[in-house]
Simulated assay, not measured.
Amino acid sequence: MAKAGGGEGACLCGAVRYRVRGALSAPVACHCSQCARTSGHHAVMASCADADLDIMAGDPLRWYASSPSVKRGFCAQCGGNLFWKDAGSDVIYVTAGTLDRPTGLKLSAHIFAGSRADYYDIDDELPRSDAW
C-alpha cells in the first residue's frame, strides 16, 4: 500500500527533519546484516523519488558509504538512521520508523530474510526473499 501524500519525519533529536512530497511505496523489512548494524534490528524502509525528498532541517545530516554504490544518511547528533540510497538510482529509501504518525503505510515484504538474526522469527505471511 503506497501513501499518496508522502509525509514528514525526523530523527530522534529532531535536528534532521524531512518532507516527502510524492508517494511513498509500501515499506519492506530488510533483514541484511548492514541494516541490522545500522538500526540494531531489521530496518523497515519505504521509497520515494529522490526529487520528492526535501530536507527541511538537516545541519547534522551525514552520509556514510556502506558499500561502493550505497550510502546511508544519519543524524550526526543523535545517530538516527534516516535514509538509504543507491548511487545509480533516482529513488531514496526512508526508514519508516522516522515518519510522523500516522503513516498510512502497511508492510509489504521481507528481503534478505535468510540473513535475519537468530533471536527472532518472521511470523507473518508476507512475501519473503533472500535477495533484494
Rank of each mutant, 00 (worst) to 15 (best):
M1W: 01
M1G: 14
K3V: 15
G7E: 05
E8R: 15
E8D: 13
E8C: 13
G9I: 13
A10P: 04
A10D: 03
A10M: 13
A10F: 02
L12R: 07
C13Q: 10
A15F: 00
A15L: 05
A15H: 11
R19Y: 00
R19I: 08
R19A: 10
V20I: 15
R21T: 12
L24S: 09
L24T: 12
L24G: 09
S25Q: 07
A26G: 15
P27I: 13
P27Y: 03
V28A: 15
V28C: 09
A29T: 10
H31M: 06
H31I: 04
H31S: 03
H31F: 01
C32Y: 01
C32L: 06
S33F: 02
Q34N: 06
Q34V: 06
C35A: 12
S39K: 11
S39W: 00
G40M: 05
H42V: 04
V44D: 04
C48D: 01
C48A: 15
C48H: 07
D52T: 09
D52S: 08
L53C: 00
L53P: 02
A57Q: 15
P60Y: 06
Y64R: 10
S66M: 03
S67E: 12
S67L: 12
V70M: 00
K71N: 02
K71C: 02
G73H: 06
F74C: 10
A76Y: 00
Q77T: 15
Q77D: 13
C78L: 02
G79L: 04
G80Q: 06
G80N: 07
N81A: 12
F83P: 05
F83S: 03
K85M: 02
D86K: 05
A87L: 14
G88R: 03
S89E: 08
D90E: 14
D90T: 10
V91W: 00
V91G: 00
V91T: 14
I92P: 01
G97D: 05
G97T: 03
T98M: 09
L99N: 00
P102K: 02
T103C: 02
T103R: 11
G104I: 08
L105V: 08
K106T: 15
L107Y: 01
F112C: 05
A113G: 06
A113L: 12
A113H: 14
R116T: 04
A117I: 07
D118P: 08
Y119Q: 07
Y120C: 01
D121N: 12
D121V: 09
D123C: 11
D124L: 06
E125Q: 13
L126T: 11
R128L: 04
S129V: 08
S129K: 13
S129W: 03
D130E: 13
D130Q: 11
D130N: 14
A131I: 06
A131T: 14
W132F: 12
